[in-house]
Design a binder for these strands. Structure first.
Lengths: 257, 257
DNA sequence: GTCTATAGGATGATAGAC
DNA sequence: GTCTATCATCCTATAGAC
């Protein structure tokens, strides 16, 4: 009679949470592909088949782990983007630096609980820097809406850039944010462990002027900078090699082409 | 008597090259982790065990594939960096934009054979955006020397930045270059396939002003930009959380901490 | 509804015959 | 130098006990 409603003390929610916690911990530490389902279930103290029972498969588990943390980040992002739009009503123009900061800050320095969010940051970073497979799709599903709003606002803030220039600079911004969040050890291997990689507030403070100045840079003044060798001709060229020299006709079904 | 010296027509070098070609093709198309050794050997028409015989294991095969293409890229980088140093003797100062371009251009637009290099670019991009595991280490071994020279020259070109500011901007530069080379489909999923992702010359032309302006931006003028909300206090803080709240003592041997 | 036990198919790696 | 056979491990799926 002590348990009215739930059938047992080891409820569905408890084991589910245990699996999610262990998966989050291990994904954040080793990355998605390196973690086996057996290591997750053994750490959680449950049976392997429960992952299939609750989440379908490994990707479903990743989705669940990410979705659990996505809402506060997206809400924070939307609030900061709202503030940018509000300020633009006064100043008459959106500021690229503020928009980038509004999109970046909630991920690198969230206002929710710190301990759990640190793990989430690392895990998102690892998922970001994963190859364009399941993890990329999971990240896309979770952040798609706010990311599109961010891109639209940033586009408004940079009207002087051509569509192509804006596109490639945007790629640089995403790459920079991704590496700020969790660069896969490459820079640290090159320069040594001089700075604390977990001090995201210092990282964001140092990187924001970089990203803002990059987006606000004049749009390729066509050879204003001095140069000794002949430059590429024009930036508006969208060349397309006619045939890709397929050396082997046995190629599989190409996914990213 | 037609074959003097080599024991058979299917020499060691021939099958070795067949394996390398197939591995390069498949790694470039699907990424390192997704490609199985059996798919490589079946495409190459050889036995599975030959990979172990020639390259030891899968990582050894990746190393061999990368090393085959590394030399011309590194040589080209060194030549362009030499030219930057030469110009600096005249102008009296290294130019950050030129240095970044010298490091980026050989990877995105090599002067060697085009067909083989396209595959190499895509493969390096996939390896770059892989998690911080074997592929990252392979990339590091191959590009370490030139990358360190690039970093040292770029540091000289930005003497007004503090060490910490330079570090995080450098992280942004590497992230941007990586995403320019092969962003894992994230931006394309967000904005659609508007621009040809393989047109690296347009990408580099549009991105260079971004990266150069970012490195040349003034070093965090401490609240010069207008802002409505209270900012973080100081950029020189290198906080370190005292304990990382290890929830489970059953954690494995942590690799990246 | 919750969970255990177990099996199928595929992977990376290796030993040993030819 | 090449190949067959085999191993341990992985993800996934399902049958059936509580």
């Amino acid at each position: 009679m002590s348990n009215r409603g739930r059938p047992r003390k080891s409820d569905s929610g408890r084991t589910k949470k245990r699996i999610l916690d262990s998966a989050e911990e291990l994904f954040a530490r080793h990355g998605f592909q390196k973690v086996s389902l057996r290591s997750i279930t053994s750490e959680a103290g449950v049976n392997v088949a429960l992952i299939n029972y609750y989440f379908g498969n490994k990707v479903g588990l990743l989705d669940a782990v990410l979705e659990r943390r996505a809402a506060p980040i997206n809400d924070h992002r939307n609030r900061l983007l709202d503030a940018c739009a509000e300020r633009a009503k006064v100043t008459g123009r959106l500021d690229a630096g503020e928009i980038i900061e509004a999109y970046t800050l909630p991920l690198l320095r969230s206002d929710t609980a710190d301990a759990s969010n640190r793990k989430m940051q690392h895990m998102i970073g690892l998922a970001y820097s994963d190859s364009s497979l399941e993890t990329g799709r999971a990240i896309h599903r979770i952040f798609r809406d706010v990311a599109r709003r961010f891109i639209a606002m940033l586009r408004e803030a940079c009207p002087e850039l051509s569509a192509q220039e804006f596109h490639w600079r945007l790629v640089c911004v995403f790459g920079g944010i991704t590496y700020l969040l969790a660069e896969p050890g490459r820079v640290r291997r090159l320069v040594g462990p001089e700075f604390d990689a977990s001090d995201k507030s210092a990282a964001i403070a140092c990187a924001m002027p970089f990203l803002a100045a990059g987006m606000s840079a004049p749009p390729a003044p066509t050879g204003s900078k001095r140069s000794a060798k002949p430059r590429r001709k024009g930036t508006r060229r969208v060349t397309k090699t006619p045939a890709e020299h397929a050396s082997k006709p046995t190629a599989r079904t190409g996914s990213p082409a």
